[in-house]
Design a protein around this nucleic acid. Structure first.
Lengths: 123, 123
DNA sequence: CCGCATCCATCTCGATACTG
DNA sequence: CAGTATCGAGATGGATGCGG
């Protein structure tokens, strides 16, 4: 299987996109938002362990990449909703595939880690 | 679609696996290695921009996770080959899906970035 | 050829505090 | 509610030199 672009080349545009996806928080946010719009603090509450800063930064990147939309409702106080854009929606299946792989093979990975650490890691 | 584990929970084992995959170099290495065993310096040459340190570290993580195998051939000088394990092979399709999404939608992302930067980014 | 050790610049991240 | 600003700590990355 060949690529149109050489993804092993530096500065390959595909790599830049790959870099964005290769982000722990980005994947979780995309997965969390795929069922419908969500507010900032709702995301922050749901995605345990993410700091406000990381959430803010990651959302901004995703917005810049056109994957997530940001809608401000002029209520008092303001509410801001984040949702998948049509472009972002095309990622749904891929993100789900990653998450499900992680689920299915998590135990095997954990076992491999144990075996590895037990074999050569101890001193 | 529900998950067996709550991937939004901290310390969820699935998240740990996700974190490993959410790595720029890991994805590139897995993709590069999926057609057969490769030597260390071959990988280093092919994956432009990766430092020896990053390659070495990422390979070790992948080996620990049981995704990549490391085989030392006692030649002089030694040659070391890295290959997908059976577990790693189950990731082939998923990694390919990510890479192909990046390829297909790269232009849209680049356009979105341009629009975003042009609209509110300039000062 | 493979890869670890070290040094050092850089960056990222989390916690905290403050604004519209 | 939804962020931005700031700061210090820790992780990360590249460059270099050495050893098996």
């Amino acid at each position: 299987m060949a690529y149109i672009y050489d993804i092993y080349e530096e500065n390959c545009p595909t790599r830049q996109v790959l870099d964005r996806l290769a982000d722990k928080w980005a994947l979780l946010i995309l997965d969390r938002v795929k069922h419908g719009p969500m507010r900032f603090n709702h995301l922050k509450r749901d995605i345990r362990g993410i700091s406000q800063k990381a959430l803010s930064q990651t959302l901004k990147k995703l917005e810049r990449d056109g994957l997530v939309s940001r809608t401000v409702h002029p209520t008092i106080p303001v509410t801001v909703e984040y949702a998948l854009t049509p472009l972002g929606a095309t990622l749904k299946e891929t993100v789900a595939a990653i998450a499900h792989w992680a689920e299915r093979h998590m135990e095997a990975v954990l076992d491999a880690q144990k075996a590895y650490d037990g074999a050569g890691g101890e001193r």
